[in-house]
């Protein structure tokens, strides 16, 4: 099975990236191409979406916000996922690169959460008549944002790198469990208190019933946002690797 999926050839090379030197070499090679590809995909996707798609019959031109809202929400969740995986690998394998990937991922994910929330609010005002409703989806995104803030704040609070790596990883894992729990609790809560709200009627911008005119540019801008995330992740991780090396060198200088 492993061979069929090509995993036999993938994982050994993947884990080699945990060596900082290998990571720096490979990421340095990839980065210019990634940046170019990001600009290309994001540019085409958004220009296509903004200039070349028709207005929706019901939503008018606000439908164009979807090319920002859905991709950023997608990255916001996956950014947390990357963070959790990096933390898990750090706790199990003790290789610094993985926890630095997690560290670099958090601010990007946080920004994407803000983008998703604001674009959603801007879209919600004309469509739902309000910037904010305590709909389960919206609420869980706000909670996700709170978890990001806590994680970033903990990184900023402690000097000792190994210690803070352990602590933030523990927080990321426990946070993930509670984030999922909150997602379901919130579902329960809204049902319990506001039965039969009509908010979800306006949720017509569902991926399943979206026509292909809107879907193709959306797909392209989703790929673009994904590449943007990857690019920033590599840049951030490279910086953190260098920062760690810098800290070691400065520590040595102090010893002398």
């Amino acid at each position: 099975m492993r061979t069929i999926l090509g995993m036999k050839y993938f994982w050994p090379y993947f884990w080699k990236l945990a060596n900082p030197k290998v990571f720096m070499r490979w990421s340095g090679l990839c980065l210019p191409w990634l940046i170019a590809l990001t600009v290309l995909c994001l540019g085409t996707g958004l220009i296509w979406g903004f200039f070349l798609t028709p207005d929706d019959a019901r939503q008018g031109s606000t439908v164009k916000i979807i090319y920002l809202h859905v991709p950023s929400a997608f990255i916001a969740i996956n950014g947390y996922f990357v963070m959790v995986l990096g933390s898990l690998f750090w706790l199990v394998r003790r290789q610094h690169v993985s926890v630095l990937v997690a560290k670099a991922s958090a601010p990007i994910g946080m920004t994407m959460t803000v983008i998703a929330l604001t674009t959603g609010a801007i879209w919600g005002q004309p469509m739902w008549g309000t910037y904010w409703v305590w709909d389960p989806r919206l609420t869980s995104f706000l909670i996700l944002f709170l978890f990001y803030i806590g994680y970033v704040a903990l990184w900023a609070a402690i000097e000792n790198q190994d210690k803070v790596a352990d602590l933030t990883s523990v927080l990321a894992l426990v946070g993930a469990v509670f984030a999922v729990l909150s997602r379901y609790a919130v579902l329960f809560w809204n049902q319990g208190l506001h039965q039969g709200t009509t908010v979800t009627v306006a949720d017509g911008v569902n991926q399943k019933n979206i026509s292909s005119i809107f879907f193709q540019p959306l797909l392209l801008s989703m790929i673009g946002f994904g590449l943007l995330f990857l690019t920033l992740l590599l840049v951030g991780t490279r910086t953190e690797i260098r920062a760690q090396r810098l800290q070691v060198l400065e520590g040595l200088e102090k010893l002398k």
């Binding site: 709170l146 806590g150 903990l154 927080l171 509670f178 609790a185």
Partner: peptide
């Protein structure tokens, strides 16, 4: 408080 309050939500 910042770390714990979100965990209290459920």
């Amino acid at each position: 408080s910042l770390l714990v309050l979100p965990l209290y939500i459920p």
